[in-house]
Design a protein around this nucleic acid. Structure first.
Length: 1042
RNA sequence: GGGCGAUUAGCUCAGUCGGUUAGAGCGCUUCUCUGAUAAGGAAGAGGUCCCAGGUUCGAAUCCUGGAUCGCCCA
């Protein structure tokens, strides 16, 4: 047998396991790269997942999109290295360990011991890598996990240190006091990237307070949604341009807000611009901190540009340390940020009665105290969106802290310029979400007061001299200490003498670690341990690797990475190399459940990837993601929707493949004996090959443009045409093992396998392996190149199929079974359409089961013609005169016009006194059916059936019914398709007579070597009824010829 | 509050340069075909193309405003 038999009920998951085994045995992934070594490079960078949890379906989405384009490029001859990677550092890992060890706060970690804590972090983050690797292999994501980079590796950390040292040398690394979102539980500031994590902003109800601040001018009223900041009120901000009023009760507020605050009856004593209030001293809400401690202008009214009269009072409570606007205002007015809140979120000793109270818990106490002292105008709950820690869900505080920054805002123009060179999918992200984000760039808050991360390589002496270390070798050179592990706490102990002339200080490390996004953003060089520009020989190999792979042609991540990895990749590369580290990026949307809800563990609506893989397999999973939608729009995902993808596409493909193998084996047709000899090919063969070439073109164009969806859908459409037109129309030729048909289908299936290899790598390889197998795997083949197309034939076939569709509809309307032959189908068509149908007349005739196809050019016989304007053609020409044109066309003699146009002539109409000639392009000719005919029409052609059934047709119809019944009997008897039978018939004489008349036909159809009549024991057999007549059938397997 | 995107049949989705009868698949009803198929074919039911204005001879498509949903910011 030339091919392994194909099981029509094959289990795809089991089949895929077999293919995986073959890939492992033949080392196909490695080979697929090795074969292309020397070809042009095409680069992919893996955005490293944090492997501290099991991967979910959304990870599968990302990973299959990361897979498809590199696979495609490799098949196109590119050398595509694919280095895996793991993001190892960071708060998520620390949090998992804290939870495991039952820790509540930072101090617990210090008590436990940083060395032990970090050791546990290392274990935890590596513990899920096996899960990830297993899933990665199972879904067919080809990425080198053996040689994956890990952000915790010493060489990786050293590269990151090199990057920071370089940035420092360019004067872009600095420490500054700044108001940052701060998590009191984690004890660290969060970066703007972290604020971009899902779930950070939540709608919460906080107490808001209108607070009275007495002054010489009247009672200032301020509004705040963070009452806990009132203890460090330093000033009140007003808009100098805005109009303020003093009410009869001495309250001072913005004019536009007075009625909302005090009712419509409010009595206004005085109106004045905010500028008049500037400099006014007032009594602070609390006197824990004296105005003078803030500075000269403490507890006075200041002019500001951020005050609005949208809500509140138009006077803004300002606490320098607790808001970004506040802090800037303080800087501009010489006010010091005084922060009475400890790192754990409680007040310090300065806030006497509430010292040790958590600030959020103090809100109500503070409001109550104000009320008691008559300083509260009003308090009410206020719902707003407020940021929370992305991992521990604690409400963040805005809080002035010393932090280390990278001055990315200084290279904003370069970031924008680099973005111009990136191609985004979908395109609107480039100048939309991502471009806007870049335009609003603020400096990168880099430092984290945490433990499990890349240590900030900054050493500082008491005099403030800095030394930024770029490698462990450098650290050893200055300190004499050779470290193996650059992590905390070991690196914390390394000190050395300050080298600044005249300074006798001791250099100690600034204890912070850095933002993990800087780690992952450094992967283009750090994944190789590169330190570009370092020429002492220590990094030569790594630097060469980096140079060979930078920048990547392709990256792909979820859309939420615009503020995450997409940004850090761009920022780090622009800082260091003044260019983007990637050329093309595909963004992926969210995976929702079938009701459109976001999948989350808490809702319990997660679809586990292994469930999908074990039920439908990886190819189905991949195919669904590639073709059901454009990926950035997100998915409504469920096991059911995936099942549809399997039925619609994979089974259709599988059965077409199975069909070929069945008859290739039955006819012992080996692939080597096949050739696509054009002389032998039928029109249908050539049509299929032309359509195949068209599909190759579409797929290549799609994948070149990172459009897997359009490319995949084109393949699905072609597989449908192949299965439901080519194979269906060609079945008989396969029964006979006709070489041209065999060669056409074989070539088509093998080409399809190659086209599908990047999409569904398992089934593609299975088909290739069984049908061709010239290479150890389809993934080592070259991607198909489109051959010639025959556009005329493709158009002709489209017309023929349309004709068949009309004819079948006419049959259905007349309620005449397809098995019943009819004498003629009358086809109305002219010109190219008629030629097309005539060219494929045999196909049309067989499909419609009619003896002859008759053509009429004049539609009169079947219906009345109608002539309508072709708006698409005439609209641009006549513009607003179109209604006149339409009226003029309606006035034409339809039959004569149609005849004229058919002969290539033109007709004239008058519009606005001018004659215009209209050609066949300008008018649409269609038909109205006449009564009494079974006619189906569409556009300019129509099909009518002659419904009269004479004896000859009836008997032929019976013969076909008999064949149908015998086939059913064969199947019921469990015979193989190639088994020869001895057929015995008995029953009503007319049927037996029909059988006799068409005996050769029947015997040929049912593979009967002998047809007998008069069946012994016939009475016991259940008869088949045909047109009220009975037939009894017996089939027996004939002995195979010796 | 701002940015970006979406809204088309019961469901999942197409719909090109604006062209007058808006499509497919699934599901449903009826019929049919089967020498590969879990399939195929035909007919039927199913639409306020989110709403309102505007531009235009003509709008699902372009513009403005609004609604709803999602994401991202604040």
């Amino acid at each position: 047998m030339p091919h392994r038999p194909v099981d029509p009920r094959a289990s795809f998951p089991a089949l895929e396991e077999g293919v995986l085994e073959r890939w492992r045995e033949r080392d196909v992934f490695r080979e697929s790269i090795e074969r292309r070594r020397g070809g042009p490079r095409w680069g992919f960078f893996e955005g490293p997942p944090t492997a501290n949890g099991a991967p979910g379906s959304h990870h599968v989405l990302a990973r299959v999109f990361k897979d498809i384009f590199p696979r495609y490029r490799a098949m196109c001859g590119y050398h595509v290295d694919r280095k895996g990677g793991w993001d190892c550092h960071g708060l998520p890992v620390e949090l998992a360990v804290e939870k495991e060890l039952g820790m509540q706060q930072k101090a617990d970690i210090e008590r436990y011991g940083i060395a032990e804590f970090n050791a546990r972090c290392r274990e935890v983050v590596l513990s899920h890598i096996d899960d990830w690797t297993r899933l990665t292999e199972r879904i067919g994501f080809w990425v080198d996990t053996d040689d994956a980079y890990r952000t915790l590796d010493t060489t990786y950390v050293e590269s990151v240190w090199w990057a920071l040292k370089t940035i420092h040398e360019r004067g872009l690394l600095f420490e500054r006091l700044k108001v940052v979102p701060y998590c009191p539980r984690c004890g660290t500031a969060l970066s703007s990237h972290e604020l971009g994590q899902p779930g950070v902003y939540q709608d919460v109800v906080d107490p808001s307070a209108y607070v009275i601040l007495p002054s010489a001018r009247g009672k200032l009223v301020v509004w705040t949604t963070t009452p806990w900041t009132l203890v460090s009120n330093a000033a009140v901000a007003v808009d100098p341009e805005l109009v303020y009023v003093r009410t009869s009760e001495e309250y001072i507020v913005a004019e536009t807000l007075a009625q909302r605050l005090f009712g419509e009856q409010v009595e206004i004593l005085e109106r004045f611009p905010g500028a008049e209030l500037v400099g006014l001293a007032y009594e602070p809400p609390f006197d824990f901190i004296a105005g003078s401690e803030y500075g000269e202008r403490g507890h006075t009214v200041l002019a500001a540009d951020f005050v609005t009269a949208q809500d509140g009072t138009g006077l803004v409570h300002t606490a320098i340390a607790f808001g970004e606007d506040d802090f800037r205002l303080g800087e501009a007015n010489g006010l010091r940020p005084i922060n009475p809140v400890l790192p754990d979120g409680t007040y310090d000793a300065r806030i006497g009665p509430w010292a040790g109270v958590h600030v959020k818990a103090a809100d109500e106490l503070i409001i109550e105290d104000l009320r008691r002292r008559g300083r509260l105008l009003r308090a009410e709950p206020y719902e707003h969106s407020y940021p929370h820690c992305w991992r521990c869900n604690t409400a963040l505080l805005y809080y002035a802290k010393p932090s280390w920054y990278i001055a990315t805002s200084q290279i904003k123009d370069r970031l924008l310029a680099a973005n111009e060179g990136i191609s985004w999918q979908p395109p609107h992200v480039k100048h939309g979400r991502f471009g806007h984000w870049l335009e609003g760039n603020v400096d990168w808050a880099l430092s984290r007061e945490r433990y499990w991360g890349t240590p900030l390589p900054v050493w500082r002496c008491h005099a403030g001299h800095l030394h930024v270390v770029g490698s462990l070798a450098e650290l050893e050179a200055v300190s004499g200490v050779a470290l193996d592990d650059p992590h905390r706490p070991f690196v914390d102990d390394v000190t050395f003498a300050c080298r600044e002339p005249g300074c006798d200080g001791l250099m100690t490390r600034v204890p912070d670690v850095i933002d993990v996004w800087f780690d992952s953003g450094s992967m283009p060089f750090a994944s190789y341990g590169a330190r570009p520009g370092v020429t002492d020989g220590s990094a030569d190999d790594a630097n060469a690797e980096f140079a060979a792979h930078f920048p990547a042609d392709y990256i792909c991540e979820a859309l939420d990475q615009t503020r995450g990895w997409f940004y850090s990749m761009l920022a780090v590369s622009t800082l260091l190399f003044d260019q983007s580290s990637y050329r093309n990026v595909v963004c992926l949307g969210l995976i929702l459940d079938e009701t459109g809800q976001k999948m989350s563990k808490s809702k319990g609506n997660i679809v586990e990837p292994w469930d999908v893989l074990n039920t439908y397999g990886a190819d189905a999973f991949r195919w669904y993601f590639f073709t059901s939608k454009y990926p950035w729009d997100g998915y409504r995902f469920s096991l059911d929707s995936l099942g549809e993808a399997v039925r619609q596409f994979m089974l259709q493909l599988w059965n077409t493949y199975g069909f070929y193998v069945l008859y290739a084996n039955a006819g012992d047709v080996s692939p080597g004996s096949l050739s696509l000899d054009r002389a032998q090919l039928t029109e249908l063969d050539r049509w299929t090959l032309s359509r195949l070439n068209a599909t190759v073109q579409t797929v290549r164009a799609g994948l070149d443009g990172f459009d897997a969806t359009g490319a995949g859908r084109a393949i699905a459409e072609f597989v449908d045409e192949l299965s439901n037109w080519y194979v269906r129309r060609s079945r008989r030729r396969f029964w006979d093992g006709e070489p041209a048909a065999m060669a056409t289908l074989h070539h088509t299936l093998v080409t399809l396998a190659k086209l599908l290899a990047p999409f569904t790598p398992f089934i593609a390889d299975e088909i290739y392996e069984n049908l061709d197998g010239g290479e150890p795997s389809v993934h080592l083949c070259d991607f198909p190149v489109a051959g010639e197309r025959d556009s005329d034939l493709e158009r002709a076939m489209a017309v023929a199929r349309e004709t068949v569709r009309l004819g079948l509809a006419a049959r259905s309307q007349a309620k005449i079974k397809l098995r019943q032959p009819l004498h003629a189908a009358v086809v109305v068509a002219a010109g190219a359409e008629r030629e097309a149908i005539e060219r494929l007349a045999e196909t049309v005739r067989e499909e419609l089961n009619v003896r002859v196809l008759r053509f009429v050019s004049e539609a009169d016989e079947l219906g009345e013609v109608e002539v309508k304007p072709n708006y698409r053609a005439l609209g641009p020409r006549f513009g607003k005169d179109m209604p006149i044109v339409a009226a003029a066309v309606a006035g034409l003699d339809a039959a004569r016009t149609a005849a004229t146009l058919r002969d290539g002539g033109t007709v004239a109409i008058g519009v606005g006194g001018t004659e215009h000639a209209l050609s066949g392009e300008d008018l649409l000719v269609s038909m109205k059916p006449l009564e009494g005919y079974q006619v189906e029409r569409e556009g300019s052609h129509a099909v009518a059936l002659e419904l009269e059934i004479d004896d000859s047709l009836r008997v032929e119809g019976w013969a076909r019914e008999i064949v149908h019944a015998v086939q059913a009997a064969r199947r019921a008897a469990g015979l193989e398709i190639a088994d020869r039978i001895i057929l015995t018939l008995d029953g009503d004489p007319p049927l037996l007579a029909a059988a006799r008349e068409h005996e050769a036909y029947i015997a040929g159809e049912v593979l009967a070597v002998e047809v007998r009549r008069e069946l012994a024991g016939a009475a016991q057999l259940e008869p088949v009824r045909i047109d009220e007549l009975e037939l009894r059938i017996d089939v027996a397997r004939a002995q195979p010829a010796a």
